[in-house]
Design a protein around this nucleic acid. Sequence first.
DNA 1: TTCGATGTTCGTCGATCATCGAACGATTCA
DNA 2: TGAATCGTTCGATGATCGACGAACATCGAA
Lengths: 109, 109
Amino acid sequence: MVPKGTAKGREHPALSEVDLVTVLSALAEPTRMRIVCMLAEFEGERAWKDIDLPIAQSTLSHHLKILRNAGLIQNRTEGTRCFVSLRDQELDGRFPGLLETVLSCRDAH
Amino acid sequence: MVPKGTAKGREHPALSEVDLVTVLSALAEPTRMRIVCMLAEFEGERAWKDIDLPIAQSTLSHHLKILRNAGLIQNRTEGTRCFVSLRDQELDGRFPGLLETVLSCRDAH
DNA sequence: TTCGATGTTCGTCGATCATCGAACGATTCA
DNA sequence: TGAATCGTTCGATGATCGACGAACATCGAA
């Protein structure tokens, strides 16, 4: 049962099926926290390639998968390119204030 | 440099030295989340012995240590007994709204 | 069709983690 | 002093995690 629209196996779970602990686990890792902060600053999509961190491509893909499974981000494919963005609106519906609060705590250093 | 008041090596870090990711990591585990929720419901101290979960004593002690190191809880010794409570006020000073938001998200199932 | 670019998946490695029982240290009580 | 209680620490075990390179799949361009 592979989704037909996207050839690559990226799945975005319904947020109703996402657990709070899963979200916190996704955020409880420095690299992933950086990614989420980076996406929050840009208020929109960010190209996959523009996420430049000192890690291997496969490692970045791994982290993005975890963030995706936690309902924190979503992917959009355009040809061979890929764009990433936060699911902040939906997330706020499921966990009101959570992402905003975490990000504000993070901003305060 | 062992604290003299408490013979057992329980240390409570200054919240200024606690990292956000550390707090999230501490919360990102089902058993520890249950403990924090349990303490939040009681608005005050809870006796160590009254934290009855289906885990071994040593495991519980381990989880409490992690919560302690993350600045989430504090211990008070009275004779041979031990009482645990949230550091919610201090925590709110360091990470405004964080604990409250997380707990409200948790309450909402 | 062949090539290059883009992400994902696979297999592996070392590190960290949750869990337990056993041993330990501190304290109270007899 | 001796015994019991309470909580921590130690050591071991199996599971999970982050990291990487290599292989793979998809798509656009030549």
